[in-house]
């Protein structure tokens, strides 16, 4: 059994959003839909201000609230711990989206797909080949690029990151990259730990 997850090294993240673009390209995401975002947090008063970049994506929680509330069985967890949505089973009720404490789900509409990235109803070849994977009306989210993981590759956001701020691997393997980094840096912090969802995404700073 594997337990795939990710570690974000906040000291390395420079907020370039290359991961966001890499993800959108890999997954052919329509306008307004993001599987990962690099949020910014500003502090201080001019001229003494500071900014922290905080990458976010689906935390693939071990105790995933989205899976618990799904009435159709569309949300499920793979053996390797990746939380998936089966577009064929999803009815688009949105209960998973309101149950996710991390606001990491999006609903893809027919209008969104028809409109396209450029808003003129003219789809590029890239969009045409990519939008076939979506069932209009269903809820979609990050799946750690499961097709890439199955092929032994890292998710697109990880390979796109120019500073190696995203570290992906198996938390059940003591020698995996995320475990090694977490050991070296004294452990990581899970987001909204008080929600008890057991995220498989950690932050080190």
């Amino acid at each position: 059994m594997a337990r795939m997850g990710m570690v974000f090294d906040l000291k390395r993240c420079i907020g370039c959003n290359a991961c966001v673009i890499g993800c959108k390209q890999e997954n052919s995401l329509p306008d307004g839909v993001f599987f990962t975002k690099t949020l910014s947090e500003d502090y201080g008063v001019y001229p003494s201000v500071k900014r922290v970049y905080i990458p976010t994506l689906c935390n693939h929680c071990e105790d995933a609230p989205c899976e618990k509330v799904c009435p159709s069985g569309a949300t499920y967890t793979r053996d390797d711990g990746i939380v998936m949505v089966d577009g064929e089973k999803c009815i688009g009720c949105g209960s998973c989206a309101v149950a996710c404490p991390y606001d990491q789900r999006s609903q893809v509409s027919k209008e969104m797909l028809d409109r396209g990235l450029f808003g003129e109803g003219h789809l590029t070849d890239f969009e045409k080949q990519g939008y076939d994977r979506f069932t209009p009306g269903t809820v979609i989210k990050c799946d750690f690029c499961s097709n890439r993981v199955d092929a032994g590759l890292d998710p697109a956001c990880v390979v796109t990151c120019p500073t190696n701020a995203r570290i992906f691997g198996d938390f059940d393997d003591p020698d995996s990259k995320p475990n090694r980094v977490m050991r070296e840096r004294g452990g990581g912090q899970a987001p909204l730990a008080e929600k008890n969802t057991k995220p498989k995404v950690y932050y080190i700073s």
């Binding site: 009435p71 159709s72 009815i91 688009g92 209009p136 269903t138």
Partner: peptide, 25 residues
């Protein structure tokens, strides 16, 4: 009118073991 995929709404009955939406339906 709310459902993203109304034609498959019947599937909402499938998980009464864990979902209040299923139990309600």
């Amino acid at each position: 009118t709310h459902m993203g995929v109304p034609a498959k709404s019947w599937r909402a009955v499938l998980r009464p073991d864990r979902s209040w939406i299923s139990r309600g339906l």
